[in-house]
Design a protein around this nucleic acid. Structure first.
Lengths: 247, 247
DNA sequence: AACCTCCAACTTGTAAGGCAAGTTGTCAAG
DNA sequence: CTTGACAACTTGCCTTACAAGTTGGAGGTT
Protein backbone atom coordinates (compact mmCIF):
# COMPACT_ATOMS: atom_id res chain seq x y z
CA UNK A 1 0.00 0.00 0.00
CA UNK A 2 1.30 3.38 -0.99
CA UNK A 3 1.38 5.79 1.90
CA UNK A 4 1.59 8.66 -0.57
CA UNK A 5 -2.06 8.12 -1.40
CA UNK A 6 -2.99 9.19 2.12
CA UNK A 7 -1.26 12.52 1.76
CA UNK A 8 -3.45 15.44 0.88
CA UNK A 9 -1.92 18.17 -1.20
CA UNK A 10 -0.64 21.13 0.74
CA UNK A 11 -3.41 23.63 1.01
CA UNK A 12 -2.06 26.29 -1.28
CA UNK A 13 -3.89 29.33 -0.04
CA UNK A 14 -4.67 31.70 -2.82
CA UNK A 15 -2.98 35.05 -2.84
CA UNK A 16 -4.55 37.89 -0.92
CA UNK A 17 -5.51 39.84 -4.03
CA UNK A 18 -7.13 36.71 -5.42
CA UNK A 19 -9.21 36.31 -2.29
CA UNK A 20 -10.22 39.97 -2.35
CA UNK A 21 -11.16 39.66 -6.00
CA UNK A 22 -13.23 36.57 -5.29
CA UNK A 23 -15.06 38.33 -2.48
CA UNK A 24 -15.92 41.31 -4.65
CA UNK A 25 -16.97 39.01 -7.48
CA UNK A 26 -19.27 37.14 -5.16
CA UNK A 27 -20.75 40.41 -3.97
CA UNK A 28 -21.56 41.22 -7.58
CA UNK A 29 -22.87 37.75 -8.32
CA UNK A 30 -25.12 37.76 -5.28
CA UNK A 31 -26.53 41.16 -6.14
CA UNK A 32 -25.09 43.01 -3.15
CA UNK A 33 -23.23 45.13 -5.65
CA UNK A 34 -25.45 45.92 -8.59
CA UNK A 35 -24.68 47.03 -12.11
CA UNK A 36 -23.55 50.65 -12.24
CA UNK A 37 -23.18 50.87 -8.51
CA UNK A 38 -20.19 52.56 -7.02
CA UNK A 39 -17.61 50.49 -5.20
CA UNK A 40 -16.08 51.82 -1.97
CA UNK A 41 -12.77 53.53 -2.49
CA UNK A 42 -9.57 51.53 -2.49
CA UNK A 43 -8.58 52.92 0.89
CA UNK A 44 -11.90 52.00 2.44
CA UNK A 45 -11.73 48.50 1.02
CA UNK A 46 -8.17 48.15 2.24
CA UNK A 47 -9.17 49.14 5.75
CA UNK A 48 -12.27 46.96 5.74
CA UNK A 49 -10.44 43.89 4.43
CA UNK A 50 -7.30 44.43 6.49
CA UNK A 51 -4.99 44.47 3.50
CA UNK A 52 -2.86 47.08 1.81
CA UNK A 53 -4.02 49.25 -1.04
CA UNK A 54 -1.90 47.54 -3.72
CA UNK A 55 -3.65 44.27 -2.93
CA UNK A 56 -7.02 45.93 -3.42
CA UNK A 57 -5.76 47.58 -6.58
CA UNK A 58 -4.58 44.29 -8.06
CA UNK A 59 -7.92 42.70 -7.28
CA UNK A 60 -9.83 45.56 -8.90
CA UNK A 61 -7.53 45.46 -11.90
CA UNK A 62 -8.26 41.79 -12.31
CA UNK A 63 -11.99 42.34 -12.14
CA UNK A 64 -11.56 45.20 -14.57
CA UNK A 65 -9.89 42.89 -17.09
CA UNK A 66 -12.77 40.47 -16.62
CA UNK A 67 -15.15 43.29 -17.48
CA UNK A 68 -16.83 43.35 -14.08
CA UNK A 69 -15.74 46.77 -12.89
CA UNK A 70 -14.45 50.00 -14.39
CA UNK A 71 -12.30 52.60 -12.67
CA UNK A 72 -12.26 56.28 -13.52
CA UNK A 73 -9.33 58.27 -12.29
CA UNK A 74 -10.52 60.63 -9.61
CA UNK A 75 -14.08 59.45 -9.93
CA UNK A 76 -14.07 56.09 -8.26
CA UNK A 77 -14.67 52.50 -9.26
CA UNK A 78 -17.99 51.28 -10.58
CA UNK A 79 -19.59 48.00 -11.44
CA UNK A 80 -20.05 47.83 -15.21
CA UNK A 81 -23.40 47.33 -16.88
CA UNK A 82 -22.59 43.59 -16.85
CA UNK A 83 -23.92 43.12 -20.36
CA UNK A 84 -23.30 39.81 -22.05
CA UNK A 85 -20.90 41.03 -24.70
CA UNK A 86 -18.73 42.73 -22.11
CA UNK A 87 -18.54 39.67 -19.90
CA UNK A 88 -17.95 37.37 -22.83
CA UNK A 89 -15.10 39.45 -24.21
CA UNK A 90 -12.41 37.13 -22.83
CA UNK A 91 -14.01 34.62 -25.12
CA UNK A 92 -12.79 36.50 -28.15
CA UNK A 93 -9.21 36.06 -27.01
CA UNK A 94 -9.80 32.36 -26.74
CA UNK A 95 -10.99 32.34 -30.34
CA UNK A 96 -8.08 34.48 -31.47
CA UNK A 97 -5.72 32.03 -29.83
CA UNK A 98 -7.09 28.80 -31.22
CA UNK A 99 -7.69 30.27 -34.64
CA UNK A 100 -7.63 26.80 -36.11
CA UNK A 101 -11.04 26.36 -34.62
CA UNK A 102 -12.89 28.55 -37.08
CA UNK A 103 -14.57 25.38 -38.21
CA UNK A 104 -15.57 24.69 -34.63
CA UNK A 105 -17.11 28.10 -34.25
CA UNK A 106 -19.15 27.76 -37.40
CA UNK A 107 -20.35 24.39 -36.21
CA UNK A 108 -21.28 25.92 -32.87
CA UNK A 109 -23.13 28.73 -34.55
CA UNK A 110 -24.95 26.31 -36.80
CA UNK A 111 -26.15 24.29 -33.83
CA UNK A 112 -27.21 27.23 -31.73
CA UNK A 113 -28.86 29.18 -34.50
CA UNK A 114 -30.69 26.09 -35.63
CA UNK A 115 -32.06 25.73 -32.12
CA UNK A 116 -32.98 29.40 -31.93
CA UNK A 117 -34.79 29.17 -35.25
CA UNK A 118 -36.71 26.13 -34.02
CA UNK A 119 -37.78 27.94 -30.88
CA UNK A 120 -38.63 31.03 -32.90
CA UNK A 121 -40.95 28.90 -35.02
CA UNK A 122 -42.59 27.70 -31.82
CA UNK A 123 -42.94 31.01 -30.02
CA UNK A 124 -42.96 33.87 -32.52
CA UNK A 125 -45.84 36.30 -32.08
CA UNK A 126 -47.99 37.64 -34.92
CA UNK A 127 -46.18 40.99 -34.83
CA UNK A 128 -42.79 39.30 -34.95
CA UNK A 129 -43.79 37.28 -37.98
CA UNK A 130 -44.92 40.49 -39.66
CA UNK A 131 -41.55 42.02 -38.87
CA UNK A 132 -39.84 39.00 -40.39
CA UNK A 133 -41.80 39.47 -43.60
CA UNK A 134 -40.94 43.15 -43.96
CA UNK A 135 -37.29 42.39 -43.25
CA UNK A 136 -37.15 39.72 -45.92
CA UNK A 137 -38.68 42.14 -48.42
CA UNK A 138 -36.19 44.79 -47.40
CA UNK A 139 -33.37 42.28 -47.80
CA UNK A 140 -34.06 41.75 -51.48
CA UNK A 141 -33.93 45.52 -51.99
CA UNK A 142 -30.55 45.74 -50.27
CA UNK A 143 -28.61 43.05 -52.15
CA UNK A 144 -26.51 45.77 -53.76
CA UNK A 145 -25.94 47.67 -50.53
CA UNK A 146 -23.59 45.60 -48.36
CA UNK A 147 -23.61 48.02 -45.43
CA UNK A 148 -27.36 48.34 -45.34
CA UNK A 149 -27.77 44.61 -45.74
CA UNK A 150 -25.50 43.85 -42.84
CA UNK A 151 -27.53 46.16 -40.61
CA UNK A 152 -30.72 44.40 -41.67
CA UNK A 153 -29.06 41.02 -41.25
CA UNK A 154 -28.07 41.81 -37.67
CA UNK A 155 -31.65 42.84 -36.91
CA UNK A 156 -32.95 39.69 -38.54
CA UNK A 157 -30.86 37.47 -36.32
CA UNK A 158 -31.67 39.59 -33.28
CA UNK A 159 -35.36 39.17 -34.00
CA UNK A 160 -34.97 35.42 -34.15
CA UNK A 161 -33.23 35.49 -30.81
CA UNK A 162 -35.98 37.66 -29.40
CA UNK A 163 -38.65 35.32 -30.65
CA UNK A 164 -36.81 32.28 -29.34
CA UNK A 165 -36.74 34.00 -25.95
CA UNK A 166 -33.58 32.44 -24.54
CA UNK A 167 -31.22 35.06 -23.16
CA UNK A 168 -28.32 32.69 -22.67
CA UNK A 169 -28.30 31.28 -26.16
CA UNK A 170 -28.87 34.76 -27.50
CA UNK A 171 -25.72 35.96 -25.78
CA UNK A 172 -23.62 33.14 -27.12
CA UNK A 173 -25.05 33.49 -30.60
CA UNK A 174 -24.42 37.22 -30.69
CA UNK A 175 -20.86 36.74 -29.52
CA UNK A 176 -20.23 34.27 -32.30
CA UNK A 177 -21.96 36.59 -34.74
CA UNK A 178 -19.89 39.65 -33.86
CA UNK A 179 -16.71 37.60 -33.75
CA UNK A 180 -17.01 36.58 -37.35
CA UNK A 181 -18.08 40.07 -38.38
CA UNK A 182 -14.71 41.25 -39.71
CA UNK A 183 -14.46 38.24 -41.96
CA UNK A 184 -18.10 38.58 -42.86
CA UNK A 185 -17.58 42.15 -44.00
CA UNK A 186 -15.21 41.04 -46.70
CA UNK A 187 -17.46 38.19 -47.79
CA UNK A 188 -20.51 40.42 -48.15
CA UNK A 189 -18.73 42.41 -50.85
CA UNK A 190 -18.64 39.35 -53.08
CA UNK A 191 -21.10 38.92 -55.86
CA UNK A 192 -24.17 36.80 -55.25
CA UNK A 193 -23.50 36.33 -51.56
CA UNK A 194 -26.17 38.71 -50.38
CA UNK A 195 -28.59 37.38 -52.98
CA UNK A 196 -28.21 33.94 -51.44
CA UNK A 197 -28.60 35.32 -47.93
CA UNK A 198 -31.81 37.08 -48.91
CA UNK A 199 -33.20 33.82 -50.27
CA UNK A 200 -32.13 32.02 -47.09
CA UNK A 201 -33.89 34.60 -44.98
CA UNK A 202 -37.01 34.11 -47.01
CA UNK A 203 -36.93 30.35 -46.45
CA UNK A 204 -36.42 30.80 -42.71
CA UNK A 205 -39.22 33.31 -42.51
CA UNK A 206 -41.56 31.05 -44.44
CA UNK A 207 -40.89 28.14 -42.12
CA UNK A 208 -41.38 30.25 -39.01
CA UNK A 209 -44.63 31.75 -40.25
CA UNK A 210 -45.88 28.23 -40.98
CA UNK A 211 -44.81 27.17 -37.47
CA UNK A 212 -42.80 24.39 -39.06
CA UNK A 213 -40.19 23.83 -36.37
CA UNK A 214 -38.09 21.30 -38.22
CA UNK A 215 -38.06 23.25 -41.47
CA UNK A 216 -37.03 26.42 -39.67
CA UNK A 217 -34.08 24.65 -38.11
CA UNK A 218 -33.13 23.08 -41.40
CA UNK A 219 -33.33 26.38 -43.27
CA UNK A 220 -31.17 28.09 -40.67
CA UNK A 221 -28.69 25.24 -40.88
CA UNK A 222 -28.37 25.74 -44.61
CA UNK A 223 -28.05 29.49 -44.13
CA UNK A 224 -25.15 29.14 -41.73
CA UNK A 225 -23.57 26.62 -44.07
CA UNK A 226 -23.73 29.16 -46.91
CA UNK A 227 -22.24 31.82 -44.68
CA UNK A 228 -19.48 29.45 -43.68
CA UNK A 229 -18.55 28.63 -47.25
CA UNK A 230 -18.49 32.20 -48.49
CA UNK A 231 -16.70 33.50 -45.42
CA UNK A 232 -13.95 30.92 -45.65
CA UNK A 233 -13.65 31.63 -49.36
CA UNK A 234 -13.26 35.35 -48.70
CA UNK A 235 -10.67 34.59 -46.06
CA UNK A 236 -8.66 32.49 -48.48
CA UNK A 237 -8.74 35.19 -51.11
CA UNK A 238 -7.65 37.77 -48.56
CA UNK A 239 -4.73 35.67 -47.32
CA UNK A 240 -3.69 34.88 -50.89
CA UNK A 241 -3.52 38.51 -51.89
CA UNK A 242 -1.67 39.15 -48.68
CA UNK A 243 1.04 36.62 -49.43
CA UNK A 244 1.37 37.77 -53.03
CA UNK A 245 1.84 41.26 -51.70
CA UNK A 246 4.49 40.10 -49.28
CA UNK A 247 6.52 38.17 -51.80
CA UNK B 1 -23.93 71.62 -40.32
CA UNK B 2 -23.01 70.63 -36.84
CA UNK B 3 -19.37 71.23 -36.05
CA UNK B 4 -19.67 68.79 -33.18
CA UNK B 5 -19.83 65.98 -35.68
CA UNK B 6 -16.25 66.70 -36.68
CA UNK B 7 -15.00 66.22 -33.14
CA UNK B 8 -13.53 62.87 -32.36
CA UNK B 9 -13.94 61.55 -28.86
CA UNK B 10 -11.09 62.39 -26.53
CA UNK B 11 -8.49 59.72 -26.87
CA UNK B 12 -8.89 58.15 -23.48
CA UNK B 13 -5.54 56.49 -23.17
CA UNK B 14 -5.84 53.27 -21.28
CA UNK B 15 -4.00 52.93 -18.04
CA UNK B 16 -0.41 51.81 -18.12
CA UNK B 17 -1.16 48.45 -16.55
CA UNK B 18 -3.87 47.89 -19.13
CA UNK B 19 -1.42 48.61 -21.94
CA UNK B 20 1.17 46.31 -20.42
CA UNK B 21 -1.45 43.60 -20.04
CA UNK B 22 -2.52 44.03 -23.64
CA UNK B 23 1.06 43.78 -24.84
CA UNK B 24 1.67 40.57 -22.92
CA UNK B 25 -1.64 39.17 -24.10
CA UNK B 26 -0.71 39.90 -27.70
CA UNK B 27 2.64 38.22 -27.17
CA UNK B 28 0.78 35.12 -26.05
CA UNK B 29 -1.77 35.34 -28.86
CA UNK B 30 0.93 35.71 -31.49
CA UNK B 31 2.87 32.77 -30.15
CA UNK B 32 5.91 34.75 -29.03
CA UNK B 33 5.12 33.51 -25.56
CA UNK B 34 4.06 29.90 -25.68
CA UNK B 35 2.08 27.76 -23.27
CA UNK B 36 4.11 26.83 -20.22
CA UNK B 37 6.86 29.25 -21.07
CA UNK B 38 8.36 31.39 -18.38
CA UNK B 39 7.73 35.11 -18.38
CA UNK B 40 10.57 37.50 -17.54
CA UNK B 41 10.59 38.61 -13.94
CA UNK B 42 8.57 41.59 -12.84
CA UNK B 43 11.67 43.70 -12.42
CA UNK B 44 12.93 42.87 -15.89
CA UNK B 45 9.56 43.67 -17.42
CA UNK B 46 9.39 46.92 -15.48
CA UNK B 47 12.80 47.96 -16.77
CA UNK B 48 12.06 46.87 -20.32
CA UNK B 49 8.70 48.61 -20.46
CA UNK B 50 9.80 51.71 -18.55
CA UNK B 51 7.14 51.40 -15.91
CA UNK B 52 7.13 50.68 -12.23
CA UNK B 53 6.83 47.24 -10.76
CA UNK B 54 3.29 47.70 -9.38
CA UNK B 55 2.11 48.41 -12.92
CA UNK B 56 3.61 45.16 -14.12
CA UNK B 57 2.17 43.34 -11.14
CA UNK B 58 -1.33 44.64 -11.80
CA UNK B 59 -1.07 43.61 -15.43
CA UNK B 60 0.11 40.12 -14.51
CA UNK B 61 -2.61 39.81 -11.89
CA UNK B 62 -5.19 40.71 -14.48
CA UNK B 63 -3.88 38.13 -16.92
CA UNK B 64 -3.81 35.64 -14.07
CA UNK B 65 -7.52 36.22 -13.43
CA UNK B 66 -8.15 35.68 -17.12
CA UNK B 67 -6.36 32.36 -16.82
CA UNK B 68 -3.52 33.31 -19.16
CA UNK B 69 -0.64 33.26 -16.70
CA UNK B 70 0.13 31.74 -13.35
CA UNK B 71 2.72 33.02 -10.92
CA UNK B 72 4.39 30.97 -8.25
CA UNK B 73 5.98 32.73 -5.34
CA UNK B 74 9.71 32.51 -5.67
CA UNK B 75 9.45 30.52 -8.86
CA UNK B 76 8.47 33.07 -11.41
CA UNK B 77 5.53 33.66 -13.68
CA UNK B 78 4.50 31.20 -16.39
CA UNK B 79 2.04 31.09 -19.23
CA UNK B 80 -0.66 28.55 -18.41
CA UNK B 81 -1.43 25.54 -20.58
CA UNK B 82 -4.07 27.73 -22.29
CA UNK B 83 -6.59 24.93 -22.34
CA UNK B 84 -10.13 25.75 -23.32
CA UNK B 85 -11.73 25.14 -19.94
CA UNK B 86 -9.24 27.40 -18.23
CA UNK B 87 -9.76 30.24 -20.67
CA UNK B 88 -13.51 29.86 -20.64
CA UNK B 89 -13.78 29.87 -16.89
CA UNK B 90 -15.11 33.46 -16.84
CA UNK B 91 -18.07 31.99 -18.67
CA UNK B 92 -19.25 30.13 -15.59
CA UNK B 93 -19.43 33.42 -13.73
CA UNK B 94 -21.49 34.82 -16.54
CA UNK B 95 -23.91 31.93 -16.20
CA UNK B 96 -24.04 32.38 -12.46
CA UNK B 97 -24.76 36.09 -12.83
CA UNK B 98 -27.51 36.23 -15.36
CA UNK B 99 -29.52 33.64 -13.57
CA UNK B 100 -31.05 32.59 -16.82
CA UNK B 101 -33.99 30.49 -15.94
CA UNK B 102 -33.34 26.83 -15.52
CA UNK B 103 -35.58 26.22 -18.50
CA UNK B 104 -33.29 28.27 -20.73
CA UNK B 105 -30.23 26.43 -19.59
CA UNK B 106 -31.80 23.06 -20.17
CA UNK B 107 -32.87 24.15 -23.63
CA UNK B 108 -29.32 25.31 -24.33
CA UNK B 109 -27.91 22.06 -23.11
CA UNK B 110 -30.37 20.10 -25.20
CA UNK B 111 -29.32 21.95 -28.34
CA UNK B 112 -25.63 21.73 -27.73
CA UNK B 113 -25.56 18.13 -26.58
CA UNK B 114 -27.72 17.14 -29.52
CA UNK B 115 -25.15 18.70 -31.81
CA UNK B 116 -22.27 17.06 -29.98
CA UNK B 117 -23.97 13.68 -30.24
CA UNK B 118 -24.49 14.20 -33.96
CA UNK B 119 -20.83 15.04 -34.45
CA UNK B 120 -19.82 12.12 -32.26
CA UNK B 121 -21.81 9.83 -34.54
CA UNK B 122 -19.91 11.28 -37.48
CA UNK B 123 -16.41 11.21 -36.04
CA UNK B 124 -16.15 8.60 -33.29
CA UNK B 125 -13.23 6.21 -33.67
CA UNK B 126 -13.45 2.44 -33.25
CA UNK B 127 -11.81 2.66 -29.82
CA UNK B 128 -14.20 5.34 -28.69
CA UNK B 129 -17.19 3.27 -29.73
CA UNK B 130 -15.78 0.36 -27.74
CA UNK B 131 -15.45 2.67 -24.75
CA UNK B 132 -19.06 3.72 -25.19
CA UNK B 133 -20.16 0.13 -25.11
CA UNK B 134 -18.27 -0.74 -21.92
CA UNK B 135 -19.63 2.41 -20.28
CA UNK B 136 -23.19 1.54 -21.14
CA UNK B 137 -22.70 -1.93 -19.68
CA UNK B 138 -21.15 -0.42 -16.57
CA UNK B 139 -24.10 1.98 -16.32
CA UNK B 140 -26.62 -0.83 -15.92
CA UNK B 141 -24.50 -2.26 -13.10
CA UNK B 142 -24.45 1.08 -11.30
CA UNK B 143 -28.16 1.95 -11.26
CA UNK B 144 -28.18 1.38 -7.49
CA UNK B 145 -24.99 3.34 -6.86
CA UNK B 146 -25.77 7.03 -7.47
CA UNK B 147 -22.24 8.24 -6.77
CA UNK B 148 -20.62 5.70 -9.03
CA UNK B 149 -23.19 6.34 -11.71
CA UNK B 150 -22.60 10.08 -11.68
CA UNK B 151 -18.89 9.49 -12.15
CA UNK B 152 -19.60 7.22 -15.10
CA UNK B 153 -22.15 9.68 -16.46
CA UNK B 154 -19.62 12.50 -16.43
CA UNK B 155 -17.16 10.30 -18.31
CA UNK B 156 -19.83 9.34 -20.79
CA UNK B 157 -20.59 12.93 -21.66
CA UNK B 158 -16.89 13.76 -21.73
CA UNK B 159 -16.32 10.95 -24.21
CA UNK B 160 -19.04 12.30 -26.47
CA UNK B 161 -17.39 15.71 -26.36
CA UNK B 162 -14.05 14.13 -27.14
CA UNK B 163 -15.49 12.27 -30.09
CA UNK B 164 -17.30 15.34 -31.37
CA UNK B 165 -13.94 17.14 -31.24
CA UNK B 166 -15.17 20.69 -30.69
CA UNK B 167 -13.37 22.36 -27.81
CA UNK B 168 -15.61 25.39 -27.75
CA UNK B 169 -18.87 23.50 -27.52
CA UNK B 170 -17.28 21.10 -25.09
CA UNK B 171 -16.48 23.93 -22.71
CA UNK B 172 -19.95 25.37 -22.90
CA UNK B 173 -21.51 21.96 -22.43
CA UNK B 174 -19.34 21.16 -19.43
CA UNK B 175 -20.12 24.50 -17.86
CA UNK B 176 -23.80 23.81 -18.19
CA UNK B 177 -23.30 20.27 -16.92
CA UNK B 178 -21.46 21.29 -13.78
CA UNK B 179 -23.85 24.16 -13.19
CA UNK B 180 -26.79 21.81 -12.87
CA UNK B 181 -24.80 19.26 -10.89
CA UNK B 182 -26.11 20.20 -7.43
CA UNK B 183 -29.68 19.79 -8.56
CA UNK B 184 -28.73 16.64 -10.41
CA UNK B 185 -27.31 15.09 -7.29
CA UNK B 186 -30.68 15.15 -5.62
CA UNK B 187 -32.48 13.82 -8.67
CA UNK B 188 -30.15 10.85 -9.06
CA UNK B 189 -31.25 9.56 -5.65
CA UNK B 190 -34.77 9.10 -6.95
CA UNK B 191 -36.04 5.70 -7.92
CA UNK B 192 -35.92 4.76 -11.58
CA UNK B 193 -34.03 7.86 -12.67
CA UNK B 194 -30.72 6.13 -13.17
CA UNK B 195 -32.45 3.18 -14.82
CA UNK B 196 -33.85 5.59 -17.42
CA UNK B 197 -30.47 7.26 -17.88
CA UNK B 198 -28.81 3.90 -18.46
CA UNK B 199 -31.36 3.08 -21.16
CA UNK B 200 -30.84 6.55 -22.70
CA UNK B 201 -27.11 5.99 -22.80
CA UNK B 202 -27.67 2.67 -24.51
CA UNK B 203 -29.79 4.31 -27.21
CA UNK B 204 -27.23 7.05 -27.78
CA UNK B 205 -24.43 4.53 -27.97
CA UNK B 206 -26.37 2.38 -30.42
CA UNK B 207 -27.00 5.32 -32.73
CA UNK B 208 -23.38 6.42 -32.61
CA UNK B 209 -22.06 2.95 -33.32
CA UNK B 210 -24.41 2.74 -36.30
CA UNK B 211 -23.19 6.17 -37.44
CA UNK B 212 -26.80 7.29 -37.50
CA UNK B 213 -26.32 11.03 -37.06
CA UNK B 214 -29.95 11.98 -36.78
CA UNK B 215 -30.84 9.17 -34.39
CA UNK B 216 -27.91 10.08 -32.15
CA UNK B 217 -29.11 13.66 -31.92
CA UNK B 218 -32.66 12.57 -31.29
CA UNK B 219 -31.62 10.10 -28.58
CA UNK B 220 -29.55 12.76 -26.85
CA UNK B 221 -32.46 15.17 -27.08
CA UNK B 222 -34.70 12.70 -25.30
CA UNK B 223 -32.01 12.04 -22.72
CA UNK B 224 -31.70 15.72 -21.81
CA UNK B 225 -35.48 15.98 -21.73
CA UNK B 226 -35.63 13.12 -19.21
CA UNK B 227 -32.93 14.76 -17.14
CA UNK B 228 -34.81 18.03 -17.26
CA UNK B 229 -38.05 16.48 -16.05
CA UNK B 230 -36.54 14.52 -13.19
CA UNK B 231 -34.29 17.40 -12.12
CA UNK B 232 -37.15 19.89 -12.01
CA UNK B 233 -39.23 17.34 -10.14
CA UNK B 234 -36.48 16.85 -7.57
CA UNK B 235 -36.15 20.62 -7.23
CA UNK B 236 -39.85 20.97 -6.57
CA UNK B 237 -39.78 18.26 -3.93
CA UNK B 238 -36.78 19.91 -2.28
CA UNK B 239 -38.38 23.35 -2.22
CA UNK B 240 -41.62 21.88 -0.89
CA UNK B 241 -39.92 20.14 2.00
CA UNK B 242 -37.99 23.34 2.58
CA UNK B 243 -41.11 25.47 2.90
CA UNK B 244 -42.81 22.90 5.13
CA UNK B 245 -39.74 22.98 7.31
CA UNK B 246 -39.76 26.78 7.40
CA UNK B 247 -43.40 27.09 8.35
C1' DA C 1 -32.24 84.37 -3.83
C1' DA C 2 -30.13 82.28 -7.79
C1' DC C 3 -26.00 81.51 -10.22
C1' DC C 4 -21.31 81.13 -11.23
C1' DT C 5 -16.37 80.53 -9.98
C1' DC C 6 -12.88 78.53 -7.70
C1' DC C 7 -10.71 75.70 -4.52
C1' DA C 8 -10.18 72.04 -1.20
C1' DA C 9 -10.98 67.27 -0.35
C1' DC C 10 -11.24 62.94 -2.20
C1' DT C 11 -10.11 59.23 -5.54
C1' DT C 12 -7.45 56.73 -8.74
C1' DG C 13 -2.76 56.29 -11.30
C1' DT C 14 2.03 55.70 -10.81
C1' DA C 15 6.58 55.46 -8.63
C1' DA C 16 10.04 53.84 -5.31
C1' DG C 17 11.91 51.30 -1.51
C1' DG C 18 11.87 47.59 1.66
C1' DC C 19 11.17 43.15 3.91
C1' DA C 20 9.22 38.37 4.16
C1' DA C 21 8.67 33.94 2.04
C1' DG C 22 9.47 30.63 -1.37
C1' DT C 23 12.30 28.47 -5.18
C1' DT C 24 16.43 27.21 -7.60
C1' DG C 25 21.03 26.43 -8.72
C1' DT C 26 25.68 26.06 -7.02
C1' DC C 27 29.28 24.57 -4.41
C1' DA C 28 31.56 22.43 -0.82
C1' DA C 29 31.67 18.68 2.52
C1' DG C 30 30.95 13.88 3.35
C1' DC D 1 28.56 10.56 -6.42
C1' DT D 2 25.42 12.07 -3.09
C1' DT D 3 23.86 15.36 0.16
C1' DG D 4 23.57 19.37 2.60
C1' DA D 5 23.58 24.27 3.18
C1' DC D 6 23.88 28.70 1.37
C1' DA D 7 23.37 32.54 -1.87
C1' DA D 8 20.85 34.67 -5.46
C1' DC D 9 16.69 35.44 -7.42
C1' DT D 10 11.61 35.92 -7.62
C1' DT D 11 7.11 36.78 -6.08
C1' DG D 12 3.91 38.52 -2.11
C1' DC D 13 2.88 42.19 0.58
C1' DC D 14 3.41 46.67 2.89
C1' DT D 15 4.39 51.66 3.30
C1' DT D 16 5.00 56.22 1.70
C1' DA D 17 4.68 59.67 -1.63
C1' DC D 18 3.17 62.46 -5.30
C1' DA D 19 0.63 63.35 -9.80
C1' DA D 20 -3.73 63.76 -12.18
C1' DG D 21 -8.50 63.87 -12.37
C1' DT D 22 -13.27 64.46 -10.29
C1' DT D 23 -16.62 66.29 -7.14
C1' DG D 24 -19.02 69.10 -4.11
C1' DG D 25 -19.38 73.00 -1.43
C1' DA D 26 -17.92 77.65 0.14
C1' DG D 27 -17.96 82.18 -1.13
C1' DG D 28 -18.54 85.91 -4.06
C1' DT D 29 -21.24 87.95 -7.92
C1' DT D 30 -25.34 89.12 -10.34
Amino acid sequence: MNSLAALSPVEQQKSASQRVGDQLRDLIASGNLRAGERIPSENELARALQVSRPVVREALRGLSMLGLVESRQGGGCFVTDLTADRLLQPLSFFLQLHDHSLEELFRARALIDRGLAEDAARNASREQIEQFKTMVGLGFDLVDDPVGFRVMDAKFHALISEAADNSFLTSVSQSLYSLAMDSRRRASEMKGVLQQSARDHEAIMAAISKRDVEAAGEAMNKHVEHIRQTTLMAEQLASQSETSYAS
